[in-house]
Every structure is written in structure tokens, then in C-alpha cells.
Design a protein around this nucleic acid. Sequence first.
RNA 1: GUGGAUGUAGCUCAGGGGUAGAGCGCCUGACUGUGGAUCAGGAGGCCGUGGGUUCAAUCCCCAUCAUCCACCCCA
Length: 441
Amino acid sequence: MAQYIKPRVPRGMRDILPEQMIRRQYVIEVIRNVFEEFGFEPLQTPAMELSEVLTGKYGPDAEKMIYQAGHTGGKEDISLRYDLSVPLCRVVAMYPQLPKPFKRYQIDPVWRAERPQKGRYRQFFQCDADTVGSESMLADAENVNLIYQVLSRLGFKGFQIHLNDRKVITGIGLFSGVPSKQLGGLYRSIDKLDKIGLDGVTAELRENEIPEDVIAKLLTLLQIEGDSDSVLSELEDQLGEYEIAHEGISELRDLISFMDTLGIPETSYQINVSMVRGLEYYTGPIYETVQDASIGSITGGGRYDELIGSFSKQGFPATGTSFGIERIIDLMNASDMYPSTVGKTVTQVLMTVFDDTLMSESLKLATRLRQGGIRTEVYHRPGKLSTQMKYADTKGIPYAVILGSDELAAGNAAIRDMSSREQEDVPLDRIVDKIQQLISC
RNA sequence: GUGGAUGUAGCUCAGGGGUAGAGCGCCUGACUGUGGAUCAGGAGGCCGUGGGUUCAAUCCCCAUCAUCCACCCCA
């Protein structure tokens, strides 16, 4: 008895079988179309980067989750990429001649060595669109527009794009008077507002020995709600004396003004002072989208004006957003949000093979179907139509073409509509036209 | 890294100290030129892995691994 290796994949990684792959390709296609519609162009970078390119960019917590990719005898210290933004910055610094603004999109896997759970994988695809070389809030407004367009076209309703600004957050830090060492913990507690509520945040702040008067001041900030104009003027009242916060507030004002002009409905976004985002490299507006609290955010992004400067004397302002398609697909699967054109199979016709003597006739007809642009599978074992029908049915192939001796004698073949079970004899030279017509409607 | 739950047929799961069951799925036939129904057969499991207790373990105990969930953090 042979010793078998138990077939399995690394934890947090998975195979995507054809039926799921078809859905995934549909989602990616929608995203790609929107990206290109806005003038973003494709880019690909290696799955691995030199470790030095990745370190020191994400913050200490995130950095622990970078996969080391060395091999025995390897001389280079290399790692699997953690996201697509840092490689982009490396590219921009490496090819300074790229015309600015440089707008690129990238749809590729990234790796994070964390504990898998719902909506969290160790290998997952990010779909990023970024603009390098524009300090205008228009670039950020376009990012938000991408989010709005993609999610709307995929059929999402009721999603909320949360907006904030790193400069406002810094202002909150100054405002609270908390020593810089404790700021991380402060932001983390604030970030949990949506999850644990005001009382929960208060309790956490007390545990972290934040002074009561600071807590009281923070709470008034965190309770600011309403339309973006009133939130912004309230923030200005509270934080305006801090220059950095003032800057952040006016960035958000510009951003929202562009968003309005671009036609993004007010109901789809909100300013959320408590939304922090963990990655260290953000410097300005930040945004993330929540659809279903149980699965976390489905998009995330923001401005990172300093990151390219860590690779080159010549820095560039940059901003971008990222779609997490694993989570988007998980949500779409749960609510079956796919149009009927997204089927179980890419095959459009099963060419049956009646018996050995008719194999060559079937193959010739299949070739004509393919030349007519019809995706055609030929059944490989002649005989027993019932088996072939069952196969077409199980796979969800919409049409079967039957070429038996009777049909051939009459110069016909039968086209069977698998869902209606209706069947029609059609002259052989009209088969391609007929099926093209059936498929297009 | 921390805590909790679960690992039995391809899938969903039941069971219980004496080496195993259901439903669905799969294969074959009734249906010798036609798939979603019915009926009849059939294939398929060292009960996650390693140790311990026992005359005996899939069941009890320990360890380990994996999966899921939560925390941390994130898409």
C-alpha cells in the first residue's frame, strides 16, 4: 500500500474551484472596468519583494505578519508582499520618468501571516487603484467614487463609506493631551466605538488610565453626528485651534465638495471621527467601507504622501483605495447577488457523440461551432445519450447538440435547450447561426 | 500570540467501551436515441494523528495537528 500524502493546502489559503472562479472573474471584471473607466492602468509587480522594501512601512504590529520567503542557500532576504501600495511606491521611486499623475491599478494576491477566521485569509486578493503625484483632493474624491461605483454595480445597497483624516486624528491626540507613548492605545480604543459603544470606549480609556477630564472631552468629540457639514463645523469648533486638525478638516471639506460634484449621494458616506485605520503610512484622508459588521471592512484606503519619500529623495504625494474581493465575494455568495448571466460553467454547448461511427461528424460540427465563437465541449465517450444529457445537466451547460444517424440523414442536427427541455432539428449549415441567436438573447 | 468549539462516508451530521449508521451526492440497471421524478442494486470510512487506561478504544484520559469562532489587527 502506497503511503499517501494527505492532500491539503496551507492554513488560511484555499483552492478556488471553477464554479467559484467564474463568480470571482465576474467581480474582478466589474472592478477592472470601473478602474479603466477612470483612466487607471494595469501594473504588475513580483509576488516577493526584498524584505528591506517592506520593513518599516506598516507599523510594528502589521510588520510581524509579513511572510518571510527565503530559501536554503538564498543570498537575498526576501518576503511575500503584504499589500500592493508599498510595491507601488517602490515602482514609482524606481522609474521616476513615469508621467505624473501616475494612475495605476493592480489586482493580485497579498499574504499576511495572521490567524485565519471569518472573512480573513492568509492569502487574499487586493484590487487597488492609486494615484501618484497629485496632492489634489480630487484624487481622493475619485477613490471614493471608485468605491461607490464598484459597489453599486455589484448590487450592494446600504453600504456606508466612512471618512476621516489622519490630521484630524492627530489633532484629537493633541487635544486629549495624552502622552505620545499612549496615543496608539487611545486610537485603538476610539476605533472600537462602532463595536463596543460609548460606554465600552469609556471603560477602556479608564483602564488605560486616561484622565477623566480628557475622557469627557473625547466623548463630546466622538458623539458628533449628523450631515457632513455640521460634523465638520462642530469639529472645527472643538479642534480648530490645532493647526494640524484645521488642515485635516479643510481637506475633508474639499474632498466632500468634489464628491458632491461627482454625484456621490450623501446617503452613501459619513464622516466618522472614530475611524482610525491601523497602517502607519497614512497621512491625510482615509476611508473604509462597512457592509456587514461581522465580516469587517470590504474596502480600505487613504492618502500616504510620505511613503514614496522613503525610497527616493524625490517624494510624491499619493493616495489610493483597495477592495477586498474575498470579503466582497463572501457577502455576494451569502445573498446570491450574481446576475443570471453568471452561470456554473463557461461552456455554452455540449456536442454529444452518438456512437463511434459518428464521432468524426460530431467533431467537425464542434469545430464549426467554435469557429462561430460558441464555447463547445465534445463528450469524449460515444453512446448512451442519457449519460451525456445528465452530464450537460449537472454541469449547467445550457444547450446540447445531438447528431444521430436520423438527423445526419436529413442533413440536420438537433439543438436541445436544457432548461426548457425543448428540442428542434436545424439544418447543419444553420446550426451556428441558430445557436448564436439563442445565446445572445 | 490568547481564549472557546469542533474533527465519524464526497457533503451535512447522528451514534456509542466489544473494530460503524442516516440523509443527500456518486456509479449501474429498469429506460437498447435523450437529463431534474420513482424503484432496485452497488461502490465508498485503519471514526484527524500519536500515546495512555483497559481483556478490548472510534467512544474515556493526555498530547499534537487541522478547521471554525472570538480577541488583537486587518481586506
